[in-house]
Design a protein around this nucleic acid. Structure first.
Lengths: 248, 248
DNA sequence: GAAAATCTTTGACCCAGATCAAATGCGCGA
DNA sequence: TCGCGCATTTGATCTGGGTCAAAGATTTTC
């Protein structure tokens, strides 16, 4: 899916606001040059809240490094993560005033931002940016719906395996590691964050990870480095028939 | 939120492909006139599958009447509904070839369709259509994420109340019924369909509906007609603090 | 480099919702 | 009107994951 060309391009183009998981083919556009004028950076520390749900949001942007989460919280404190923002992911809702979710930095985070008004003005002048944004939003919608299946119908073990699968895939496509056979990647979430993502408790997350270790599906070195000796086995555990094109 | 003008407009404009929950302000566009040339209708019977997941999809369109569901199914038969399509909802993924989900007609269904290629060509020529489509997709993304909270963190009783809330709201905004105090609406889903939406079993759905009846939160006449004497009570049961602007 | 704070693991027990099973009700065609 | 098919309700029982509690690990602080 990714080839050398798109990769080198994506590496050169970390700040492109409409780059998303793959590459923006049109970065050469004159219009995009103008974005430079309204571009700025913001950094956040791990644990900091980038935006509160309901807050006015006067920028859009993308994650340059680090990880953030989109979460919803009920009055009684129950929380559900509704999105995971990894480097290259877009943040913001063009055409909307407020944020619908809390955005929380899970690790130290750097974002590349654009003030919203000028960005929207440019969007209106530049059809292919609107088009690209639509594609990105459709991707996110697919991801959200795939996650609905995970939340609604999968067992705790399958949920953990599904999460590992997703992170492994994102990691592989960002770093271009081959995904045949064994994989090694970072698990940059606490047990609690995983629980919030999966609709579980942190105890259950811990137990299921221990079980997957015991059964040889994964192994951990330290708390964050995961080795998956056989990725297709992990996919099986996730109850996932599709391999997302990575093993084809 | 809806006023007389938008309503009369929306009534006159059932076939507008980019009408969605509210009204398309630009239906007067010359470009949209051209859509007439590529427009056609399709009808489906209750229970029929409109599109299978993975099928090539050569049209986009919107629901004129009836109800359809978007569902995902695992190999072992577990299914999760990931979207509910009511009249005026858009169907399709401009720029994508295949469907990601099964689309199933829950009742008899009439759709207004447009062949995809010409529609996309028109989209490219007509920025505000792309823009409108982006807004709609953002709405759907919000709805999907709100549903993730329901699936991941709510109890069975709260799930049922949440579903009733959503259907009541959609019904109210389509039919412009006032939503102060008591509401009456149709519940056009079987217990099984509700279960698939909520990540529950049909037995649990039935039990919780009985419980809500017993506690006077709702009452049923026949199987499909629901009366909610006090909507804010239902919202409370849903664990929902926001009232979606309907009770403001 | 010891103490404190924070994560993580593991254990024991419990309960909401699943599963299995058996009525009951309802619509519809002959 | 009867009887068949199907959706729904209700009951009895089981279990996956939640809850509460207590040790380990790991990281941070001073």
């Amino acid at each position: 899916m990714l080839n050398e060309k798109t990769v080198s391009h994506s590496v050169e183009c970390d700040d492109c606001p409409i780059r998303h998981r793959a590459v923006c083919a049109r970065c050469e556009s004159d219009e995009l040059e103008r974005l430079e004028e309204i571009k700025y950076y913001r950094s956040f520390e791990a644990g900091q809240t980038v935006i509160w749900s309901g807050d006015r949001m006067d920028f859009v942007g993308s994650v340059v490094s680090g990880i953030a989460t989109l979460t919803q919280t009920m009055e009684d404190g129950r929380t559900q993560m509704v999105g995971l923002l990894l480097p290259s992911d877009f943040v913001g809702r063009p055409g909307r005033d407020g944020s619908a979710y809390d955005v929380v930095a899970t690790t130290d985070l750097v974002m590349c931002c654009f003030r919203k008004k000028p960005f929207e003005a440019m969007m209106a002048r530049t059809p292919h940016i609107a088009h690209r944004l639509l594609e990105m939003t459709l991707d996110e919608l697919d991801a959200a719906r795939e996650w609905m299946l995970v939340l609604g119908r999968k067992t705790a073990r399958e949920k953990i395996a599904s999460l590992l699968t997703i992170i492994a895939r994102r990691d592989a496509s960002l770093n271009l590691r081959s995904s045949k056979g064994s994989m090694v990647f970072d698990l940059p979430l606490t047990r609690e964050a995983m629980a919030d993502y999966l609709g579980l408790t942190l105890e259950t997350v811990s137990r299921q990870i221990s079980a997957l270790k015991r059964d040889g599906v994964i192994s951990l070195q330290g708390k964050r480095h995961v080795t998956v000796p056989d990725f297709s086995r992990l996919l099986e555990e996730a109850g996932d028939d599709s391999d997302g094109g990575l093993l084809a």
